[in-house]
Amino acid sequence: MSDESSGMHLTLEIWRQDDADDRGRMETYHLDDVSPDMSFLEMLDVLNEQLISGGREPVAFDHDCREGICGACSLVIDGKAHGADAETTVCQLHMRRFKDGDTIHVEPWRANAFPVVRDLVVDRSAFDRIIARGGYVSVGTGSAPDANAIPVPKDRAESSFEAAACIGCGACVAACPNASAMLFVAAKIAHLSHLPQGAPERDRRVLAMVDQMDREGFGNCTNHFECGAACPKGIEVETIARMNREFLSAALRER
């Protein structure tokens, strides 16, 4: 536990926007006594408590689990989605990564497909619509065979898991200069295509999900690979190549 008087003084430049129609602007705030043991979101909590006590509206930001798994938190910190630490969501980022006197810029995800709802909160429902087009195995409740009837080689199960670890936060989109959603879509395709389950709908899945991705207005992938660097779950950019192969062979078979 750190002594309060050793707390840091910080300047925060934060994006404020009343609603989707507002143009938005950066505003400056000063915060004293920030403990290095605080998480980044706890630091924002302290700021918000101060704002509310002063009768001002707190900074809106999405968060829930605060342990890196729900995918709700979504801040661009000093130009980096989820901040500079590798494989870390912003809720897991701690203030010990900053120093006394720092100025920190905080902005929302920026992408046409993710309109700002308020301040740092964006609308990521495009991701749900992509999943609704095929990000599942079509198996109605009650119709499953015994769980051990389909053995899955351990390494394939592991690869599937690695891709399934995606938390749907959208950092990949926020980090990409083109705001492409390829890594998100590829992760779901890889999760399912490593497994024997759902193989009959493999072609349909990749075609439909890519189609929806395009309709939502995400950009193209031009191999910047910023997505992989920003992904808090370490999902590898090779996953995209795998999806491209899936897509091509599915498209060929479709013809």
Partner: peptide, 15 residues
């Protein structure tokens, strides 16, 4: 049900 949905549970070397 969950395995059929593609939930990647931990497996042993026999799959």
């Amino acid at each position: 049900q969950c395995v059929a949905q593609g939930v990647p549970f931990a497996r042993d070397y026999g799959g």
